[in-house]
């Protein structure tokens, strides 16, 4: 019986069993590779592979009990993709627009009042929004695409327990919205070896230069402790394997056709690192955040639902 079969069977029989046991105990019992047969929503992490972005996401979110596990009726949502670069979707430098669109649709399906989408881009923001295909995707799904190019929209916050980052300016929508869904794209990165969930936070703050000047990896870990997204959705469909985060040509892209979902930002990045082909503890900020107790990079300690399409 392989994992998947086990999982399928457990799903059928496991509702009662899952209800009988407390989640914490159960996790300890099945620490490691065996996925729990529990009710939807009991997983720490869901990974999907070999499907199209939209189908993979639909499947993955089911494992958490659907979008309504995260979004309640009438809530305001921020969906934060990576829209950092003025490149086309094929180049893998920005989050997949189809995925973004589907997430917004699911948010509205769960009763969301408003879904905001923005990124403090690196290249010229309007060109990024347009050429990434995300502006259109957001509009088609009925979300609000918000320019994030004005310092006035950012408010200074204290980063509690930050070792290097004590204060930083955060976009007001992150502070005012009910739910924050982080939708990074997995890429190689010249500054931080890879980028995924935690590094994606650099698009919700104003002054990135400060982070770069003051121990970048520590700042990334510090901020991850300050604001944990309610859900991290790592797009690893087209993975920019080299010359990231911008990439030079489509030749830099590898079709990994994967997707990772987790409430735990460190776990999500750890799984992303594995998909990328490196060990999570070789990525400094993942290690730092793990040590600071932001989340868990040890995937063997987590209940993971692995879905092959």
């Amino acid at each position: 019986m392989d994992r998947r079969e086990f999982f399928k069977k457990s799903l059928l029989t496991g509702v009662a069993a899952g209800a009988a046991m407390t989640l914490g105990d159960y996790e300890k019992l099945f620490a490691g590779n065996v996925p729990p047969p529990g009710k939807p929503g009991s997983f720490d992490l869901v990974a999907v592979k070999d499907g199209e972005p939209v189908a993979m996401f639909d499947k993955a979110i089911e494992s958490f009990g659907g979008m309504k596990a995260f979004v309640k009726k009438g809530q305001t949502i921020v969906v934060k993709p990576n829209i950092g670069w003025d490149t086309s979707p094929e180049r893998g430098a920005n989050t997949n627009p189809d995925l973004v669109k589907r997430i917004i649709e699911q948010c509205f399906g769960a009763g969301a009042k408003t879904v905001y989408v923005f990124d403090n881009t690196c290249d010229n923001w309007s060109k990024c929004y347009e050429n990434s295909g995300i502006q259109k995707a957001v509009k088609d799904a009925g979300g609000k695409i918000v320019p994030a190019n004005t310092e006035g929209n950012y408010q200074e916050v204290d980063v509690k327990d930050g070792k290097r980052l004590k204060k930083t300016k955060v976009h007001e929508l992150i502070l005012s919205s009910d739910v924050f869904i982080n939708v990074p794209v997995l890429k190689s990165h010249s500054s931080s070896s890879i980028t995924a969930s935690m590094k994606n936070h650099m698009g919700i703050v104003w002054d990135r230069g400060y982070w770069h000047r003051n121990n970048l990896n520590q700042c990334i870990a510090d901020f991850a402790a300050y604001r944990k997204p309610d859900l991290n959705i790592v797009d690893a469909y087209r993975v920019l394997s080299k010359r990231g985060p911008r990439g030079v040509s489509v030749e830099d892209v590898v079709m990994m056709k994967s997707l990772v979902l987790s409430r735990d930002i460190v776990a999500a990045d750890a799984a992303a690192a594995k998909i990328f082909g490196i060990e999570p503890d070789t990525v400094p900020y993942i290690k730092l955040a793990h040590e600071a107790g932001v989340g868990n990079m040890d995937l063997t300690k987590l209940s993971i639902n692995r879905i092959k399409m």
Partner: peptide, 28 residues
């Protein structure tokens, strides 16, 4: 100067004329 990671220059380079190469330990 600070022995911490950066690479903002290489990050933004559209042709990767600016590339990060090994320096000390994991630093580039």
């Amino acid at each position: 100067a600070k022995h911490t990671a950066c690479g903002a220059c290489s990050e933004h380079c559209p042709t990767k004329a600016v590339e990060m190469v090994p320096y000390l330990g994991t630093l580039t």
